[in-house]
Design a binder for these strands. Structure first.
Length: 651
RNA sequence: GCGUCAGUAGCUAAAUCGGUUAAAGCACUCGCCUCUUAAGCGAGUGCUUGUGAGUUCGACUCUCACCUGACGCACCA
């Protein structure tokens, strides 16, 4: 039946609802006409009224109260302002004998209302559409006056009401509405989130985002909380997300990029290395895939004469969930004819810096410049020029100090050009990373398998010994190395395999260290089937990735526009696929045909929007920046849904 | 899929080495209170301690399995 838990609180609310329905005749009226004082003809909101009139509230220091003269001065003006406002009860109705103060919220701000037993009325039916159209027609106006105090005592925390009255400031200096009459608008049948703690359980926050958002608007600031560091609420996170997306669109629109929408359901899922979701079109009786990237469609448009296009929308990848991965995620992809990867790197830097600055400018929760953000314990600076490193430079720079000396040898940059050394290093690091703990636990007297926990000398010996095994080839048989080897083998050729290892090493030693915005260049061609080769090195792609906060944020390159070479690259991927790499890129025959019509030299860029939002909102989990992230289905609710579907006669 | 940690009332949560009837605050119900503001005062309802087994005289506490989640790994160029 119902999925709402039964308890004393839900019962009380339902009883209140029944009483209200009996008294008003309709507990869910269709509309409430709000006043248009602040910005006619827009209806007044709690936020707009509060923002406009709060300047009249007397300024006081600490616990000091406003003087009667100050209050009188403010009230002289405020008492003439008559408003009709609506919102949700932000507190449980707290009655003091014959009067009550409660707060209403519109999801952003809260405003206090003052209700008196003797004078405040409740009304019902007054705003029916006919009563407005046929004003004065008594027969059609079913507006009725009710017992205000009785109605007020049937209200619960979270209910919606509309109020009419005039503004005033209380003795404590708070802007309030002196309510002449109010109207019941809608019932909250379940208890509201805790006013102090909100919702703490991250699962519940994501699963019931509506409740999470409500919690933010109901939360009170406690004495204990530092008023200087206001918390970024869920509402703020998504306002910022919207501001960022708006700024990015604006940036591109201003520079003559055309926003387009290409297919989400595609017959060939290509343009990236990922497994797709599969679905079926009944009428055509064909298999369709949810797109994994819009890339190949956008380049078709460049062929067709759109010199600059962008798409900001969802991609779908059938992969695991993590703090950085959601099966559907938002990507901005754009393409510009006659540019190359270097131009695109500059553009990437510029759009991010400007969009972030625009998105954060005027955000009253920002304490510092809009281009300097807090990311966990770090400060990320978007003002400075983004650093640019080749993949190998990054490996050398971030190679762990405790591993620099491997046995009798010393790690040096030239190792990365030696295929055999690269292979052994990758295998060693992988082993070291995944269960470095095994030998280290033996070395460490306590149960802390960290480098700090073990005696320095013993640690060096262990590493030296482990490395010696790999250097002699003895470590190759390790089970843990198999996955890595098969991964690297996907690419086929010797050079590609080495390239794969270099990339693995990069990800193991450098990626998480790249906190400040850093471009990584010189990607192996073998792992970049859609990118043009570097004019300086045929083994490299003219490609870059941007890392910030230890995350891959953007990926761009000079687009391969030679249809013959593109076909060969696809063929290479096809081979990898046949060897078992089910994420190798799929050949798209129509795309090759499009390229054959001729595509100008073009550069493209993809920016992971969710991750940028994580950065600018200081959120460590992608689930915190996606309104409804994918979660394992809730137990029980599936069955309830299913049952309901059957009741509807749907199957 | 693997590992670590967690799950106590609607919410936030306490409970010494395995030991009496499983604290408390918020919320809810009733009463009092006409400028309160995390309103206050008084009284009251509500927990088969995630589920199921086991060890024990005795289990929130220990063991095993399962469910759910967080984090890490794997997967994800």
């Amino acid at each position: 039946m119902s999925f709402i838990e039964e308890n004393d609180q839900t019962q009380a609310r339902r009883q209140h609802l029944e009483r209200i329905a009996a008294i008003t005749g309709n507990a869910y009226p269709n509309r409430f006409l709000r006043s248009q004082v602040v910005r006619p003809p827009e209806p007044d909101t709690i936020t707009s009224v509060f923002e406009i009139y709060k300047y009249l509230t007397p300024k006081t220091e600490g616990n000091e109260r406003a003087t009667p003269e100050q209050l009188e001065a403010a009230n002289r003006i405020l008492n003439d302002v008559h408003v009709a406002l609506a919102g949700r009860l932000a507190v449980p109705p707290r009655v003091m004998g014959k009067a009550a103060f409660v707060h209403l919220t519109d999801g952003v701000s809260r405003l206090q209302i003052y209700v008196r037993k003797e004078s405040t009325k409740a009304v019902a039916g007054g705003d029916d559409i006919h009563s407005v159209l046929d004003a004065g027609d008594e027969a059609k106006n079913d507006r009725r006056e009710l017992d205000g105090w009785e109605m007020f005592n049937l209200l619960d925390h979270g209910d919606f009401i509309g109020v009419r009255g005039h503004l005033f400031v209380t003795k404590t200096g708070e802007l309030s509405v002196h309510v002449d009459e109010f109207e019941f608008l809608a019932k909250a049948l379940v208890p509201m989130p805790d006013k102090v703690h909100g919702i703490n359980d991250p699962e519940l926050r994501a699963r019931r985002r509506y409740a999470d958002l409500i919690a933010g608007s109901l939360k009170v600031e406690t004495d204990a909380s530092d008023s200087n560091i206001r918390e970024l609420t869920t509402r703020h996170v998504f306002e910022r997300r919207a501001a960022l997306v708006r700024a990015m669109r604006h940036y591109l629109d201003e520079r003559d990029y055309t926003e387009v929408e290409t297919p989400m359901l595609v017959p060939v899922a290509s343009g990236a290395a990922a497994r797709p979701f599969v679905t079926h079109h009944n009428a055509l009786d064909i298999t369709l895939y949810a797109r994994i990237a819009p890339e190949l469609y956008l380049k078709r448009l460049v062929v067709g004469g759109f010199e600059r296009v962008y798409e900001l929308n969802r991609n779908f990848r059938n992969e695991g969930l993590s703090t950085r991965h959601n099966p559907e995620f938002t990507m901005l992809e754009f393409y510009a004819a006659y540019m190359d990867a270097h131009d695109m790197m500059n553009t990437c830097e510029d759009i991010l810096r400007r969009s972030i600055e625009t998105a954060l400018a005027g955000d009253d929760l920002m304490t510092s410049a809009a281009t300097v953000i807090r990311w966990g314990d770090h400060t990320i600076n978007f003002d400075k020029a983004f650093e640019r490193l080749t993949m190998k430079q990054a490996i050398v720079r971030y190679f762990p100090d405790e591993l620099r000396e491997l046995g009798a040898e010393k790690f040096e940059e030239w190792w990365l050009d030696d295929a055999e050394r690269v292979r052994r290093l990758a295998l060693f690091l992988n082993d070291y990373e995944t269960h470095a703990s095994a030998p280290l636990i033996e070395a460490a007297p306590d149960d802390k398998p960290t480098l700090e926990g073990a005696p320095r000398g013993a640690m060096r010996d262990i590493i030296a010994e482990a490395w010696a095994q790999y250097a002699s080839g003895a470590g190759d048989g390790e089970e843990t190395a198999d996955d890595l080897e098969s991964n690297a083998a996907d690419a086929g050729t010797e050079a590609a395999r080495t390239a794969g290892y270099v990339q693995q090493i990069f990800e193991m030693v450098a990626e998480s260290e790249l906190i400040q915005p850093t471009f990584i260049t010189d990607f192996p061609k073998a792992v970049s089937p859609l990118a043009k080769a570097s004019p300086h090195d045929v083994g490299l792609a003219e490609r870059f990735e941007l890392y910030i906060g230890g995350m891959e944020i953007a990926n761009g390159f000079s687009e391969l526009n030679d249809p013959v070479e593109q076909r060969e690259r696809f063929a290479g991927q096809q081979k990898a696929r046949e060897q078992g790499d089910d994420e190798a890129m799929v050949l798209d025959e129509d795309y090759l045909r499009a390229l054959s019509y001729g595509m100008p030299p073009t550069a493209g860029l993809g920016i992971g929007i969710d991750r940028v939002v994580m950065l600018i909102t200081n959120r460590r989990s992608i689930r915190d920046v996606i309104l409804f992230p994918h979660l394992r289905p809730e137990r029980g609710i599936e069955d309830a849904n299913h049952e309901a579907a059957h009741d509807d006669g749907r199957d």
